[in-house]
């Protein structure tokens, strides 16, 4: 069994934040937490968290080249616990290693953005949010690594986060029988689903303190685009989002805007796209000084058949842009 291990600069013993800009290094054998895995680690890959975040293409290029050369049975990443940058590097590296045909085991807190970055392409052992969970995490990651290297069923080797992989299986009863059973249970007060929806457990962000001086952006998943759909936003399974300048635009007129969403009937939207995005109303409230400024860009995508994990990545990217541009609050309309 050949195992490689990825850690950040801190767990590689290179230093703390002062060493976070260290480019990737290849270290023979096990380092730091790798020694606690109880596995034979042939080499450790390490990279500074900031370097990975700021030079992702370069960092990935080097790390993947080493991985491709070594061709391990399993790549172990972390555990990163609640560390966002470290977790992001682990999840991203695991996802890209998957494209090379290399399976990965990560460890991180379920809320770590690295979980989304991995896009279901890694086996992620849920850990505590801080390093106190090291002793609990390492044996679980090791057990999963051994099972995967041996080609055994990983689900028998311990818990890992959902990978959003659906497999066909035969059920004892037909869908009609099961649906009726679920409906009767719901009427009796027992609401269940065959497809569990994870509770992201978020708490609301703080309020906009002075909305009369605030910049408010409009974002939508209603497929609202300039007429003619200049960027070819698809009607379903969108893989991108776009933004369109609305500086000086008083209203989303049907002459100039439309929706290309394929998930609902477009009659009402075609007559008046303001029914999807309330630009005309927000302009009135801007004129009456109820709100400071309407942000100069409308952000849009089609939310139709989009996995929550993919939509969350769109949201994160859009939020990062809006943050950078000094937007204080967002009105997002959903269809």
């Amino acid at each position: 069994m050949k195992v490689l291990h990825y850690v950040n600069q801190f767990f590689a013993g290179m230093g703390g934040e002062d060493a976070a800009s260290t480019p990737p290094v290849l270290i023979p054998g096990a380092v730091g937490p790798g020694r606690g895995l109880g596995l034979e680690i042939s080499a450790t890959l390490a990279c500074g968290d900031d370097y990975f975040a700021e030079h992702e293409d370069d960092a990935l290029g080097q790390l993947l080249a080493w991985l491709d050369e070594a061709r391990p049975d399993v790549l172990v990443c972390g555990p990163a616990f609640g560390s966002g940058r470290y977790g992001y590097a682990c999840g991203t590296l695991a996802r890209e290693a998957f494209r090379l045909g290399i399976v990965s085991v990560c460890g991180m807190d379920p809320q770590n953005p690295g979980v989304l970055a991995a896009q279901g392409k890694a086996y992620i052992v849920p850990t505590s949010a801080n390093v106190a969970g090291m002793r609990d995490a390492l044996p679980k990651m090791a057990a999963l690594t051994v099972a995967l290297a041996a080609g055994e069923d990983p689900s028998a080797a311990g818990p890992f986060l959902p990978r959003h992989v659906r497999r066909n299986a035969f059920a004892a009863e037909t869908g009609a029988d099961r649906a009726v059973e679920l409906l009767l249970a719901k009427i009796a007060g027992d609401t269940r689903s065959e497809i569990p929806i994870p509770d992201p457990g978020r708490i609301p962000p703080g309020p906009v303190l002075d909305i009369a001086a605030a910049t408010i952006a409009l974002v939508t998943e209603s497929g609202c685009v300039p007429r003619g759909n200049p960027d070819q936003l698809p009607s379903r399974h969108a893989r991108s989002w776009h933004r369109y300048a609305i500086d000086g635009v008083a209203s989303l007129s049907p002459e100039h805007y439309e929706s290309v969403h394929g998930g609902f009937e477009l009659g009402a939207a075609s007559e008046d796209p303001n029914r999807l995005v309330p630009l005309d109303a927000l302009r009135q409230l801007e004129a009456s000084r109820r709100v400071g400024t309407v942000h100069g860009w409308l952000y849009t995508t089609t939310g139709n058949g989009t996995p929550v994990a993919a939509a969350a990545l769109f949201g994160q990217a859009i939020a990062a842009e809006l943050n950078e541009e000094g937007v204080d609050g967002v009105i997002l309309t959903g269809t």
Partner: peptide, 21 residues
Amino acid sequence: SMAGATRVLRGIAITNPVGDR
């Protein structure tokens, strides 16, 4: 809410969350 939104306002309809023909 299930997808994680923290401040949600009920709109008018799926086809026209902020309008009524």
